[in-house]
């Protein structure tokens, strides 16, 4: 096994998981993985092994964000839900290999709420809460101050709480 293949084996879960939770569409997440691995291949000899993971996470996040913007500009894929939010029709139509992860009703609503968050709150939440990165690592990847990461994290969780509060009648009092 080459060094490149070993790196792919080591980091593929992080890349695919981020893309999957960010986009909520397995097919698009696969596209992102392909794109990220291609870029890893192209830059393989320039990259420092110790900085590989932050680099991969940044490239993955940027690829997801680009895809999200492209998706938003393609209005035919967007259908308004009863609450007036835009959702991706392809997401609900395609079989999802991560369906087990969304088995519970609460989890399903939570992931739907996560996908409605604006950037960079969505990235911060995925990196911190799902992937368990440290604040400083997130700050380096997203190139923002440490305190800004904290603010986005708390704000993102507040929004999730508000969204889920509507569903589960946990109406915020604030």
């Amino acid at each position: 096994m080459t060094g490149f293949e070993a790196a792919v084996a080591r980091h593929q879960r992080r890349v695919f998981s981020f893309a999957h939770y960010f986009l909520g569409n397995p097919s698009e997440a696969e596209d992102v993985v392909q794109e990220v691995l291609l870029r890893l291949w192209q830059n393989w000899h320039k990259l420092d092994a110790e900085r590989l993971e932050p680099w991969l996470t940044r490239v993955t996040r940027n690829a997801c964000y680009d895809l999200l913007r492209k998706r938003r500009s393609t209005s035919r894929y967007m259908v308004p839900d009863p609450e007036g939010h835009a959702t991706n029709q392809a997401t609900s139509d395609r079989p999802d290999p991560g369906a087990k992860a969304e088995a519970s009703d609460f989890r399903k609503h939570l992931l739907a709420a996560l996908r409605k968050l604006d950037e960079p709150m969505r990235s911060v939440l995925i990196l911190r809460e799902i992937q368990g990165l440290k604040y400083q690592e997130i700050a380096d990847i997203l190139e923002m101050p440490l305190n800004t990461v904290r603010v986005y994290l708390h704000r993102g969780r507040q929004r999730l709480r508000k969204q889920l509060g509507r569903v589960y009648d946990h109406v915020p009092t604030g």
Partner: peptide, 13 residues
């Protein structure tokens, strides 16, 4: 929410 997010699995490509 915090527990559920932290309990989400990492997915294999």
């Amino acid at each position: 929410i915090r527990q559920e997010l932290r309990g989400l699995p990492e997915l294999d490509t």
